[in-house]
């Protein structure tokens, strides 16, 4: 326990002496650190949304790796056992964590609540719940499953929406497409391409077969032999030709095909979908403890 923290350094952190008597029912395994910070408590309803009616305010009493003690200025203690607790950091930013209520002790100074941090998989703001997800039934990226609840959390300033990505989707049904190099005209991926050789010395450009002679390369124009790639000649990709519609082009186009409705079009004609995720400042007990030590 730290009794000599520099008050000039931690202006908002007041460190008190630990109480003589640890209240009954509090049997924490980890060492506690005294810490007084503004705190808000928000009860979590069964569907994961906040109970805006019963938001409590107060300050922290102590903190350990496993939980916290809080003093809440609220006549009635929260009736739900799962809470989201926001602790104000030194930079006035609230950081949030999901906690389970362990005990409530009435004292002359108000209500003292003991809470423990929940296991990661029971956290209200699990990373995968804050991000859009792939819906295999519609082959599209869907918004976070509990988006309505997340919007309500946004209203309380706990989460905030952020644009996480832009993806190319079918302009007809907004499903995800697959991509291939294909014909600009008809979209076929069946393309043929002929390789050419450019002999530098005589400027001749011709099909590779015209250069091939008994395992060697010889220029059909100037009869130069033993040509070395890079020094004497370069390979050129001739224009592609489409085996389906005979269109010829210098470069194949990116062709997309929708996984859901099958629409095939140049990738440039796809729509762009903005993916919205949610961000929350997470409370890390170790950081809190560090700030006390």
């Amino acid at each position: 326990m730290n009794r000599s923290a520099d008050p000039a350094k931690n202006v908002e952190t007041r460190v008190y002496a630990a109480p003589e008597v640890i209240p009954p029912g509090e049997r924490r395994r980890h060492p506690r650190y005294l810490l007084t910070r503004p705190v808000i408590t928000i009860p979590v309803l069964a569907d994961g949304s906040p109970d805006e009616e019963r938001v409590g305010e107060g300050y922290t009493i102590d903190v350990s790796v496993g939980g916290m003690s809080l003093r809440i200025d609220q006549s009635e203690p929260p009736r739900l056992s799962t809470l989201v607790v926001g602790v104000e950091s030194e930079s006035s930013q609230y950081h949030f964590s999901t906690v389970r209520m362990r005990n409530v002790i009435e004292s002359s100074e108000g209500k003292r609540i003991g809470v423990e941090f929940v296991e990661p998989e029971r956290c209200v703001f699990r990373a995968e719940q804050l991000q859009p997800w792939f819906d295999a039934r519609t082959f599209s990226l869907a918004p976070p499953a509990n988006e309505e609840a997340l919007t309500r959390w946004c209203g309380l300033g706990v989460t905030r929406p952020v644009v996480t990505d832009y993806v190319q989707v079918c302009s007809a049904c907004r499903a995800l497409p697959t991509f291939r190099h294909g014909c600009r005209k008809c979209g076929s991926a069946r393309l043929g391409n002929i390789q050419l050789i450019h002999h530098f010395a005589c400027a001749y450009v011709g099909f590779v077969e015209k250069f091939e002679q008994h395992g060697d390369l010889m220029c059909p124009k100037c009869r130069a032999k033993h040509l070395v790639v890079g020094a004497d000649f370069e390979y050129l990709a001739g224009p592609y030709h489409c085996l389906d519609c005979n269109w010829r082009d210098s470069t194949p186009e990116h062709i997309a095909q929708c996984l859901r409705c099958g629409m095939r079009c140049p990738a440039s004609q796809l729509s762009e979908q903005q993916l919205i995720g949610y961000h929350v400042h997470r409370l890390d007990p170790l950081v809190l403890i560090d700030s006390v030590r």
Partner: peptide, 16 residues
């Protein structure tokens, strides 16, 4: 349209 990836001079472009 034929694209040559790097400059090879006017003659090679015409020959291509």
């Amino acid at each position: 349209v034929i694209r040559k990836p790097r400059r090879g001079g006017k003659s090679s472009a015409l020959n291509a």
